[in-house]
Amino acid sequence: MLQGSARPLEYLVPADVAEAAAMKAAGALVLAGGTDVYPTHVGRPIARPIVDIAGLDALKGIEVTHDGYRLGALARWSEVAAANLAPRFDALRAAAREVGAIQVQNAGTIGGNLCTASPAADGVPNLLTLDASVELTSPSSRRVLPLEGFLTGYRSTALGDDELLTAVLIPRGGDDARATFLKLGLRRYLVISVVMVSAVIDFDERGRVREARVAVGACSPVAQRLRALEADLRGKPADSLEEVVAPAHLAELTPIDDVRATADYRRRAAATLVGRALAACGRDR
């Protein structure tokens, strides 16, 4: 696909992951889908070399493995939305259809969404409720970190200077769990989330919660699992989940006042959306 003869140092095309990681370690800016890189450089040049990883086949595709699912870091949102995945991925797929517009979903990647580490990244709460891990690869090593450990703060990650995020890993099990994603924005489309909620609920044969995973995004520097709520949901019948939610379950959230909403509004909206998401999972069972 790349056929230009001139190949200046400002635009680097690595042959493999190790070479890409070495170029990054030497100071190059990693470019995959580009949907975050360009908006952060409007009106000013990109003042360092770009390493274009979009051609690395090892980072592509969505596949079932022995251990679960492997989503290549270059999996684009439109691929995630269209992928033939189990019901527990429904929330992630719903989020994939809410990331920007179709033109953005055709370019933006799941790996980029995680590396940008925005508090409002639509992918994050849904990957937290899937118990996702990330695979990080350097020229000399490979390690796997839980997503919660990878995201360390506001637009901050545990990615080393010489590492690339190469895949998102979802463990096996609970494929029939019900999953719901709710996003609150100031309009229906093309918005940065004010609050978002992801819920993945695995029910037993009697319709009681076997395992619940709930995460809230855009209400703290990094989206958070609500583990106290998850514990209280265990064993509850499908039609009563909304009633379980109490203010204390959201105490760990630290929403802020900004141009989109006040902290108080965010906290109330989060409680409402969590209840709705749980009710939707229960109805869907």
């Binding site: 470019l31 580009g34 908006p39 439109s78 920007g100 033109q103 055709n106 370019a107």
Partner: peptide, 23 residues
């Protein structure tokens, strides 16, 4: 200039993309 408005959309190998945010 940041992939929101769609005025720059073109088809690249048949798929619509925002050409302002693609190299």
């Amino acid at each position: 200039g940041e992939g929101v408005c769609g005025a720059c959309a073109v088809l690249v190998d048949g798929e619509p993309v925002s050409s302002c945010i693609v190299l």
